[in-house]
Simulated assay, not measured.
Amino acid sequence: MNEINLKIKAYLNGTEIDLGDVKFDISQTIEPVDDLKLYTTSEIANLLGVGEDYINLLRNNHALVATQLGKRFMYSRKEIKNFQENFEGCELANREMIMDAVKNLHKKKSSTPGK
C-alpha cells in the first residue's frame, strides 16, 4: 500500500473537466518513520543493555553522537548504527579505553583515502 491515487479535475470557464487518474508511488519519496525517530538516553541504554551513565560516558567522550534538544540528549538510529560499526570489536570498559578507541578511529579515518 505504497500508492496514492488522485483524481485530477480542472475548471475552465465554470466547466469541470476530468483530466483522469494519477497514481503516485510514495515508497521512494517518503523516508520510513523509523529512520526519523530519535531515542532518549534511557531508550539507548535499554537497547544496548547498559546503564544511562555509560551512555553519557560514551557521548561525553565522542564515541556516541547525540543531538541536544533542550536538556535532553537524543540519538538517531543512524548514529547508533555508526557506533556499532565504528567500535565493533573494541573494548570500551572505561573512559581511557573509550578515548583510545575514539583516537584510533580518527587516525584510521584520516589515513583512509576518500574519507
Rank of each mutant, 00 (worst) to 15 (best):
A45C: 03
T29R: 08
T41S: 13
P32Q: 15
N61W: 06
K9V: 00
M99N: 09
V22D: 03
P32R: 12
D21A: 08
Q84L: 13
M99H: 01
K71T: 15
Q84R: 09
Q84I: 10
Q28N: 12
K81V: 15
K81D: 09
L48N: 07
M74A: 05
K107I: 09
K7S: 10
L48M: 13
Y54I: 09
M99E: 14
E3C: 08
G14P: 02
F83Q: 04
L58N: 10
E3K: 14
K115S: 11
N86K: 10
I98T: 02
K109N: 02
G14Q: 05
E96K: 14
I4T: 04
A10H: 06
K9Y: 05
K7N: 09
S111Q: 11
A101G: 03
V65S: 01
M74S: 01
E31V: 12
N104M: 13
D25M: 05
Q68Y: 06
Q68S: 08
L12G: 05
L19W: 04
R77F: 04
S42E: 15
L19E: 04
V33I: 13
A66G: 12
D21S: 09
I80E: 07
R59V: 01
T40V: 04
D34G: 07
K107F: 07
Y54L: 05
I17W: 05
H62M: 08
A93H: 07
E85Q: 11
L57P: 14
E91S: 12
I26Y: 14
T41I: 08
I4P: 02
Y75G: 07
E3V: 15
Y11Q: 12
N5I: 14
M97G: 11
I4N: 01
R77W: 04
R59Y: 01
N5S: 12
R77Q: 12
L105I: 07
E91V: 15
I26G: 02
G114S: 01
D21V: 11
N104Y: 06
D25C: 07
K109Q: 03
I4L: 01
E3D: 07
N13C: 06
E96T: 14
A63E: 01
G20L: 01
L92K: 04
E91G: 06
P32M: 13
N61M: 00
D25T: 06
L105V: 06
I8E: 00
A45L: 09
